[in-house]
């Protein structure tokens, strides 16, 4: 049984094309969760190297990027990532699409930094000893060798997010999806993580409430109420989004508006 399943998965994995352009295609995508329409009518072709996503809380940003890593499957329409339908390759997607969570404490699975990094390598078939030595080499390469034996809980916020990003990068994904990775960081840590991300070869899709982080991006998507409200260059989208927020903030409201 297990043998059969594994072979089947490999056959499906082979339908990935890491050079597909566009690398992600969404067609009439809808997502319903617990009777609630979280996303509707989304059609997109993504081929830019740096894509930012903006929108208010609850606008569907997080759900949208979860579709790309297979954490959610669309309830209607199709999502194709690197040429493969996410419904059939769900389990193999994390190999190509790395996902960085908003809160590093939610992402870390293991007690120590070294184990956290090594996990990615064992996922790719490394033995335990290979993975541990590989993790050490990788941490050293990124100037973090001294953090290896530390308990994850003892790190600073910036270090935690750094380790979370490295834990994903060690698997060499082709696309890195980040869900507000800077929201818990101070100014300095934000800049450092920003520089780290900017220097990566990987394609990047990042959600951010800090619009200044997205000004150099190739494309920005603006989500509202589960739909795509605007799609274009940061020079067009970011000022429009900001103007919309300012206009709405000054209208007197009741608690429902929050």
């Amino acid at each position: 049984m297990a043998f059969f399943r594994k072979r089947q998965e490999n056959a499906q994995a082979s339908s990935f094309n890491p050079d597909a352009d566009p690398y992600a295609v969404l067609e009439n995508v809808g997502l319903e969760m617990t009777g609630h329409q979280v996303l509707q009518d989304i059609s997109l072709k993504l081929s830019e190297r740096r894509i930012g996503i903006v929108g208010l809380n609850g606008s569907g940003k997080s759900s949208l990027i979860r579709l790309l890593n297979g954490l959610r499957l669309p309830t209607s329409g199709d999502v194709r990532v690197f040429g493969a339908d996410t419904k059939t390759v769900q389990r193999d997607l994390p190999r190509y699409v790395g996902f960085v969570f908003q809160n590093p404490d939610h992402q870390a699975i293991f007690p120590t930094v070294e184990e956290e990094i090594a996990f990615g390598l064992t996922q790719l078939g490394a033995s335990k000893t290979e993975a541990v030595s590989g993790a050490r080499v990788f941490l050293e390469r990124h100037g973090c060798a001294h953090l290896g034996p530390k308990p994850f809980a003892d790190l600073s916020e910036g270090q935690k997010q750094l380790i979370c990003i490295l834990a994903v990068l060690v698997m060499k994904p082709k696309l890195l999806v980040l869900d507000e990775p800077m929201s818990s960081l101070d100014g300095l840590a934000t800049r450092r993580i920003q520089n780290l991300i900017a220097a990566l070869d990987q394609r990047i899709i990042m959600i951010s409430h800090d619009l200044s982080l997205l000004t150099s991006y190739d494309r920005v998507l603006w989500m509202e109420g589960g739909r795509l409200r605007m799609d274009g260059s940061p020079q067009d989208v970011l000022p429009a989004y900001e103007a919309d927020i300012s206009a709405r903030a000054d209208i007197p409201v009741d608690g429902d508006a929050f």
């Binding site: 389990r91 992402q107 996990f119 996922q123």
Partner: peptide
């Protein structure tokens, strides 16, 4: 799940 689940990748 985001990093490939408890089983890892087959190959």
């Amino acid at each position: 799940t985001a990093r490939g689940g408890a089983e890892g990748f087959g190959a």
